[in-house]
Write a protein that binds this DNA or RNA. Sequence first.
DNA 1: AGACTCCCCGGAAACGTTTACAGCTATCGG
DNA 2: CCGATAGCTGTAAACGTTTCCGGGGAGTCT
Lengths: 367, 367
Amino acid sequence: MGRKRLQEPADGRPTVHTVAARAGVSIASASRVLNGVGGSPETIRKVREAAAEVGYVPNAIARSLQSQRTGLIALAVEDIGNPVYVEMMRAIEAVVASSGRQLLVHATGGRIDNETALLRRLANRYVDGMIVSPIRVTNDHLTALVDSPVPVVVVGQLDADAPIDNVRTDSRHGVALAVDHLVATGRRRIGFVNGPLDTVPGAARDAGFRAALARHGIGLDDELIEVGDFQYAAGRAATERLLARADPDALVCANDLIAVGALHALLVAGRRVPQDVALVGMDDTELARMMFPQLSSVSLGSAERGRRAAELLLQRIADATLPPRREQVPPSLVVRASSAATLPGPRPATGPAGPPTTHPSSEGVTA
Amino acid sequence: MGRKRLQEPADGRPTVHTVAARAGVSIASASRVLNGVGGSPETIRKVREAAAEVGYVPNAIARSLQSQRTGLIALAVEDIGNPVYVEMMRAIEAVVASSGRQLLVHATGGRIDNETALLRRLANRYVDGMIVSPIRVTNDHLTALVDSPVPVVVVGQLDADAPIDNVRTDSRHGVALAVDHLVATGRRRIGFVNGPLDTVPGAARDAGFRAALARHGIGLDDELIEVGDFQYAAGRAATERLLARADPDALVCANDLIAVGALHALLVAGRRVPQDVALVGMDDTELARMMFPQLSSVSLGSAERGRRAAELLLQRIADATLPPRREQVPPSLVVRASSAATLPGPRPATGPAGPPTTHPSSEGVTA
DNA sequence: AGACTCCCCGGAAACGTTTACAGCTATCGG
DNA sequence: CCGATAGCTGTAAACGTTTCCGGGGAGTCT
């Protein structure tokens, strides 16, 4: 039988041709039945039977080539080990999975070239869309984002006029919440352990800290500000440097990993938390609840931001003509043991301070 | 002009046809030049020029259909939030990326149906291979693994006769290391906080704990054994239950997340660590170093296991006829502050115990 | 009873790439 | 100076799927 094409590939795996031949129908009919569109009862039975007998599984690549979509969504974050990205990823994954797609995760290590290379490679159509949370943004970056061939949603700050779907929070305001809380509970010598200033979040948090101090009429003491990167080890080292030259009664940290490092440094240095030094982290990851004492932390709604970003992306994939949208998730402060104690100072607690217990088991209250 | 096929898809994105037409050569020549095989200097120049002008990027899907490989490797783990998997993933990612491939991460949540569904979907050829670290293994699972159409490597215990590439450690021995160390430093009322017994690691660690106690001639006290799951919250709750009915002088935990929960419970209950209760975790993740006091932990070489699994997988992708291989990574104990103190007991420390300081900054010594 | 509609089916094109094959030219050795 | 050979080029097939289109049969309405 000189059929026009092989029924069985050398591979041995069945294709739609195999099924069709076995069922005695055309590949078109077989395909229709397998996709559940059309087909007479008799044809359906034959095709289903044949497919089951040979163990047919459609080849997703061929299907993608035809349909021009892969069902893959990419997520690019700096550091997969940071719990804040884990939370974001979980939220994204939930949305993505519920749309029948799969998530492809990339760790960029914050290296900008890495990220632009990734964006350019996007052009090869391997994913239907991408969510990226860059911590540094260059012009190169922006143009790569703007003329990306596939939909992109950015989580994080972005130029106001960039025509890109964007979900952000206000980390300046987040820092302000932390400072307000500390001031309200009587702290005055408030230190700040930040990440790199050449990153978007680093710069925003620095500005937020300075503004908040000024608003409270507290003079800025550069001795009380220290910079590392957004990791645990750097946070610990930066806090050690800070403690070696200054004597804070409170510390704000630019994320929870830094805060955990700061806690370690404080305890090693023999400071009691919160009695001697109150500590507030940022991102409100599960890490904050795992520490002893549990860490107060400014929630930047990472799960919520992830969820919204995923929804924006799915909407854009469905309709590419949508105008660029921008959503904002407000920060909120979660007070736990690490900053719950009010200093025995001039001003009694009026804020959301908890009881000054050393062994609290409360899960924190949202300010 | 009546070319056989469209030069420009409605999409507007250039294909190899676009480039070929613009360069005035055939698509075969264009493809050859773009892949760097063959072509006269003149042709090369023209094609390169045309490709640059139209901004040609090859369509990875079409290429995959032709080459029967996607360049994607899947990794399926239970919980993406567990630092042990983060470490494993980093190691795998390094190997995978150095081979020019990309990593696709799946969180299974430990649900067995989820995992088998994933394995079956593998048949659709979307990935070139898969690394899976199941915590529960059923027969269904095994058959799905064995007749998977794409190469699979399993990280974790597996039936000895299963013809599947496999990288494992000996967590029974790992638990023994922890118990030996605690006994050597004078502990006798050693508790154990485990994960679910119907999981492979849970069962192995339970058996290891019982065997180790027996080997030391210490009677087994069921009051000192508690079970939750492999998460922080469960570890904390399980430890609270255990402390409510027994008075251990040491705790072995089935992983670091549990150990962190146990530490929290101990400190809330007012026990000093390590003076009152020594604590040893398992997996030796960065979390162990982040705690105060830093946690002793049994390293199961997760990064190493990940690296080796990735290498096995790449080898098998390159040559499917290799016989099934099995590699073993030995566990090792890293002693840190949480178990460094020797009890003022009958037996002076002969083991690898560190100084009984309360504020150690040592990064731990490997036993 | 004829025309119209509806449904089902099979052939073939299309997605964008790589590659086997054959034809052509130019070069080199004898 | 001619034949072999090497290198380049273009045509066309192939990867496995979905889908457009035209043909045909059965059923229904007028």
